[in-house]
């Protein structure tokens, strides 16, 4: 695979996860090198969100190991709060804090978790907001913002913790089509800046554009993976071809 054993930003070995009777993840193995951008594709219900939530330790796993830069985060007795600081996650539904304005949304964790002073946290937050075209929104409350702006704030909020790894779960699915581009551009910029990312997405064009590697999830496993050119033009597996054909029929590629 791409990363060396020690240099891997993220390594997942034999990850199993079920909800009751439903086995959602059935032995996931994945190794992500630093600066890699992985696109997770697969049918609805194939477990993309579950995988991201397991990596962020929101969901407890049933079996397997997850390692971040050599440290096993699924080990017993590990402090989950300390791990989550290093992993940013952005959800489909933004999940901004509605009772706080933008700047407070962004600075809450740096201040309370990292212990930064208000002045320092706000200075960094303003720089980030500026970089993503949100400088004039710092004092607005989330419900004042468009969906695209809210999602960009959510990304900035995750970035403010300076995570080693960013997980994006269908961050454009809840957006009107005309707002999708602004969010995708932000992610492009992050990729160009070297951020290691795992992106669950239904935007195949975007995945082809931005990903260094595409992973196709099916039946709780990564059935096929490879560079986007290969996956999208010459998929080896019949299931992958089927999935992509359906997408093409739906006009999403």
């Amino acid at each position: 695979m791409t990363g060396t054993v020690d240099g891997a930003a993220l390594r997942i070995e034999g990850l199993w996860k079920s909800f009751g009777q439903l086995e959602v993840l059935r032995g996931i193995d994945l190794e992500v090198a630093e600066h890699e951008v992985i696109a997770l594709i697969g049918a609805s219900g194939s477990g993309k969100s579950t995988l991201l939530r397991c990596i962020n330790l929101i969901e407890p796993i049933d079996a397997g190991r997850i390692t971040i830069e050599g440290e096993e985060i699924t080990a017993r007795g590990i402090k989950v709060d300390r791990i989550r600081r290093r992993i940013g996650i952005v959800f489909q539904a933004f999940n901004l804090f509605p009772h706080m304005n933008v700047i407070d949304n962004v600075t809450l964790a740096p201040r309370k978790v990292l212990g930064q002073s208000k002045a320092v946290a706000e200075r960094d937050a303003e720089a980030l907001l500026e970089r993503f075209g949100l400088a004039d929104k710092a004092r607005d409350y989330p419900d004042r913002l468009s969906g695209g702006q809210q999602q960009r704030v959510a990304i900035v909020r995750a970035l403010a913790m300076q995570p080693d790894l960013l997980l994006l779960d269908e961050v454009t699915s809840a957006l009107d089509p005309e707002l999708v581009a602004e969010v995708l551009n932000v992610i492009r910029e992050l990729a160009a800046g070297g951020m290691t990312m795992l992106i669950a997405t239904h935007e195949m064009g975007f995945a082809r554009d931005i990903a260094s590697r595409v992973c196709f999830l099916d039946g709780g496993r990564i059935l096929e993976q490879g560079p986007p050119a290969q996956i999208f033009s010459a998929p080896r597996e019949a299931r992958t071809r089927q999935f992509l054909n359906r997408i093409i029929e739906a006009g999403r590629l």
Binding site: I58, R84, F91, N95, L96, F97, K112, V113, A158, M161
Partner: peptide, 15 residues
């Protein structure tokens, strides 16, 4: 999802 968002940023349950 509000608590999930808070926890995912590294805030403790109490925070």
């Amino acid at each position: 999802s509000q608590e999930a968002a808070a926890r995912s940023l590294g805030l403790s349950r109490w925070q």
